[in-house]
Amino acid sequence: MDKSSDSSSSKTPSKMAAATFRCPPELLLRPLVRRGSQVTLKPKLTANISTSSAKNTYKAAVCEDYDKPLVVRDMPSASPGELEPGMVRVAVQCCAVNFADILICKGKYQVKIPTPFVPGSEIAGKITDVGENVRMFQKGDRVFGHCQLNGFSGEAIASAQSMWKIPPSVSFEEAASIPTSYGTAMLALTQRAKIRSGETVLVTAAAGGVGLATVDLAKHVFNATVIGAAGGPEKCALVKRRGADHVIDYTKENIRERIREITDGNGVNIVCDSVGGDLFTQCLKSLSWEGRIVVIGFASGTIPKIPANLLLLKNAAATGVWWGEHKTKNPGAFRRSVDHCVDHLLTGQLQPYISKTFPLSKINEAFEYVQTRKSSGKVLVNITESVG
């Protein structure tokens, strides 16, 4: 691992709401937010959010009101045996910060959660209890994966199908940085783009969580020539250090001209795009014959219109990837995407990048760090560090 530093309702969430949470968190559909397209979700929490005199408690960062700082306070632990079938209870060690967490706490995400609630979904920790029909885990197992909510707390409940065991040589921090970013990147490159060794891959938003994971996989696992596009010299330098053969600073360089120069006019075989907008069109025009462009997200806030004539002229393909939805639509691919990343991590081929880790007491500072785009790769909150 590389570091640069350092509501309580019992109703089951609707399928649409649950699916929304499986979307890559940092790549939410911002145009939907701007149009005010929201679904109100009454979250199923691990415990009632209320002042409690219970003997067993844990710390949690609670969103008590939209667009207000989170409040770290004690929460009552659930009683043993209260789990539904197929679920596990996890003592959370660390949780990744994603941009969707921030929007949810502002009440601006496409799923609106009534306050109070505990945000956070990408976790690593130890299992403390298992529900019926759970065969793959037992108490004491070190695990990582996804929960719908409650990640920024000492205790969370998740589906066993959304969790993986942490190998002995892998830290909690490394594990928490894997599932969404590397799972998305793996599916984008293999299932959607069908990458072949030696091809040229262009990655936009290359300094982000999914971007750096895509650079890492494309270069160190699939032996591709990697071009990373990012905003600003510092982020471009980071992308270069993480394995990209070439970098493009799209704040001052024309991406089409640079790709033409880098590839001697041949174009790139694969584009993994997390930006959308006008940049998507530039990338599409930069494809080689029989090139493939994979839509991962729309960080620009603009969903592009695809000029289909370019697909015809280049015999090209445009496709999309939604990693989380594979949990229900293709559970085998869902689990394999992370399994394979863990395998490559253990061989030393992959190195997740964590730009900064905050203690739970600094959760609001962590949100600000991500919101102001100071972060690269993953930002984590260590739940077990002092919150005094």
Rank of each mutant, 00 (worst) to 15 (best):
M75P: 02
P31R: 05
T46C: 13
A96V: 03
C95T: 12
Y66A: 04
C105Y: 01
G81A: 10
Y66C: 04
V97T: 05
R30E: 11
A60W: 05
P43G: 06
Q93K: 13
D65G: 09
V33A: 15
V111L: 05
V118D: 03
V62P: 05
R73G: 12
P76Y: 07
A78K: 04
K59L: 14
T57R: 12
P69R: 01
R89M: 13
I104W: 02
Y66Q: 07
D74E: 14
V71M: 01
P80N: 08
Y109P: 01
V118G: 04
S79N: 12
G81M: 04
C95V: 10
D67A: 15
E64S: 14
R34A: 14
C63H: 06
R73H: 10
K42L: 12
Q110S: 05
A60I: 07
A91V: 04
A91G: 00
N56Q: 15
V39P: 00
M87W: 13
E84N: 12
L103Q: 09
V88E: 02
L70F: 13
A60E: 04
Y58L: 08
D65C: 02
K108T: 03
G81T: 09
E84D: 13
Q38S: 12
L103N: 07
D101S: 09
A78N: 07
V71R: 05
K106P: 01
S79M: 08
C95A: 11
I104C: 02
C95F: 07
D67F: 01
G36W: 10
C63F: 05
P76A: 15
Y66N: 05
S37N: 09
A96H: 02
I113N: 03
C94P: 02
G81W: 01
D67P: 02
P31N: 07
N98A: 08
E82C: 15
V33R: 05
K112D: 07
S77M: 15
L83P: 11
I102R: 00
A47E: 12
A60K: 01
V72K: 05
D74C: 02
C105D: 01
P76H: 06
F99S: 08
F99W: 01
G86S: 00
C63L: 02
C63I: 08
D65R: 12
E64M: 07
V97N: 00
I49T: 04
S52G: 13
L83W: 03
V39R: 13
C95W: 03
A54K: 15
R30T: 14
G86H: 03
